[in-house]
Write a protein that binds this DNA or RNA. Structure first.
Lengths: 243, 243
DNA sequence: AAAGTTACCAAACGATTGTTCACCAACTTA
DNA sequence: TAAGTTGGTGAACAATCGTTTGGTAACTTT
C-alpha cells in the first residue's frame, strides 16, 4: 500500500468510501528503533476541493502541521509524510503548495507568528485603555500563554533566530514585530506619566526576553511551571523596569 | 565498504595504514534531498587503545560528539553514525559505552553542564573577592559566553527542560545547580550590604533567565548579537535587581 | 604455547525520510 | 461531445538512520 490512508478512489481501487475518520500511526524514531507510535487523529476521508478552490489545501496542510506540532513534542517530528498523514492526503500533494519541507516550516512559522500577534493585541484590547500598565502586562501574559499552550510552535518560532539581520540596519522580522507591540505599550505608559527606569524600547526587550527565558527554560518542568507562577514571575519582571 | 573510514586493518583488508588525517562527509538532510554535505575533520586513523584503557574511547566519543555539535547547528545532526565518523570509529563501537543514542546525548549533556559550571566558577574566582557584584556579573558573563561560543551545546542543554521535577519538592538537576551558583553570589552581595530589590533566589533566577532569554532569542541574529552588546544587556539586567 | 579477555569492526536488518514522475479523475470550457 | 485544466495519487528512488550479530586482531594470563 502507498502512503495515503484517505484516498478517494484513484485508479479503480475498491475502498470503503465514506465512513468515520480513521487513525494513522505517526512514528518517531526513538530508542531501539522499535517504533514508538503515537496515534494522531486524521481528518475524514477527503473529498476533493472544488474547482478554483485548490488553494484551500494549503490551509489544510498548515492546520495539519500545526496539529502535528501540538501533539508531538519535537519539531523534528514535523515531517512531510507526517503532515500528509494527519491531513489525510498523499505526501506528494504537499508539493503543489510548498516547494520544500523548508518552505512548509517557514509557512507554518509565519502562520503561527500572526497568531501570536493577534492574541497579544486582542489581550491588550481587552483591558481598559486607561490602565496602561495592565495593557502591557496583558500582552505579555498572552505571549506566555501562547508559549505554554503551544510549546512546539513556540520552539519552532524562536529556535531559528531572526533571519540574518543585516549589519547596521535596524533588524526586522516577526519577532521584532512582536516586541514592537510591547514597545508601544511601554511608550503609552511613559506618556501617561508612569515612571520607567529605562527607555520603552529597553523595557520592552527586557520584559519580553525575561518572559521568554522563563517559559523556555522551565518549559517541561512538571511543577514550578503552572501558569500562575509564570505570570507572577513576569509581573515581578515588569515591576522591575518601573521606577 | 562499511561505515568506517579509519579502520586500522581489520579482517585482512589492505589499507593505507598511517598517513595524514582524512575527511569524512557528514551529511544533513536539507531541502531537496540532494545531500548537502559538510566536511568535518576526522581524527587520524585510530590506533587501538591499550589493554585496560578501553574506557578512553568513551571520552573520545564525547569529544567527537561535542565537536559535531559545534560544527553542525542543529542537534538533530547529532547522530550515532555522524559521531562515529568524526571519532573515526565504527558506529557499533559506540554501543560499548552508551546503550542508546539517548544515553549518548544524555552523557554529552551532563558533560557540557559540568563544563559550564566550571567556567562560571572559574570566572567568579578570577574577580577580586571583595567585588561581590563583579563576581556575580562575571559568572553571568561566563554563562553567556559559553552559550554564544557553543550554541549547539547550549541548545541541547536547555531545550529539554529539567528532568521531570517532582510535584512539591525543590527541583533538582544541572540547571538548578547552575542557578545555585548565582544564588550564592547574590547572597554574598546581600551579606556585604549591597541592597537588593528582591531576594537572592529571585535575583538569581531573574538574572539567569534574562541572560538566557537574551542569548537564546537572538542567537543567530548577525549583528546586534556581538558579545559586548549581550554583556551590557546582562549588566543592565543585573542593575535592575539592585535597589 | 594454549586459553582467555579486551577492543573494536563489517555487514546486515528494518525502518525512516524528502522528492520526483507519470498518471488518473473530475470538472469546465469550446 | 471533445479537449483542456485542475486537484490530487501511487509508486518508486536514493539517501539516511539506530541497532544487532557475529566476528577478529591484539594483548595478557596461565
Amino acid at each position: 500500500m502507498g502512503d495515503t490512508f484517505a484516498s478517494g478512489g484513484a485508479s479503480g481501487l475498491a475502498r470503503s468510501k465514506g465512513g468515520s475518520p480513521g487513525r494513522a500511526a505517526v512514528g518517531r524514531l526513538s530508542g531501539k528503533n522499535r517504533y514508538v507510535s503515537k496515534e494522531v487523529q486524521v481528518s475524514a476521508p477527503r473529498t476533493r476541493n472544488r474547482w478554483g478552490e485548490g488553494e484551500r489545501l494549503r490551509g489544510e496542510i498548515l492546520a495539519a502541521a500545526s496539529r502535528l506540532l501540538s501533539e508531538l513534542d519535537g519539531e523534528d517530528g514535523l515531517t512531510i509524510r507526517g503532515v500528509a498523514r494527519v491531513a489525510g492526503i498523499a505526501p506528494a500533494s504537499i508539493y503543489q503548495h510548498f516547494t520544500d519541507r523548508a518552505a512548509l516550516v517557514a509557512g507554518l512559522t509565519e502562520h503561527e507568528f500572526v497568531r501570536l500577534r493577534v492574541a497579544m493585541e486582542a489581550a491588550g484590547d481587552r483591558v481598559d485603555s486607561g490602565d496602561v500598565v495592565g495593557r502591557v502586562r496583558a500582552m505579555l501574559h498572552a505571549s506566555c500563554r501562547f508559549a505554554m499552550d503551544n510549546p512546539g510552535h513556540y520552539r519552532l518560532m524562536t529556535a531559528n533566530g531572526p533571519p540574518g539581520t543585516a549589519p547596521g540596519v535596524r533588524p526586522a522580522g516577526p519577532l521584532v514585530d512582536v516586541i514592537d507591540l510591547l514597545v508601544a505599550g511601554f511608550a503609552r505608559c511613559a506618556a501617561a506619566g508612569v515612571a520607567l527606569r529605562v527607555s520603552p524600547e529597553r523595557a520592552a526587550v527586557i520584559a519580553f526576553v525575561g518572559a521568554h527565558g522563563r517559559v523556555a527554560l522551565f518549559q517541561d518542568s512538571a511543577k514550578h511551571n503552572d501558569a500562575d507562577s509564570v505570570m507572577s514571575f513576569v509581573d515581578e519582571f515588569v515591576s522591575l523596569v518601573f521606577a
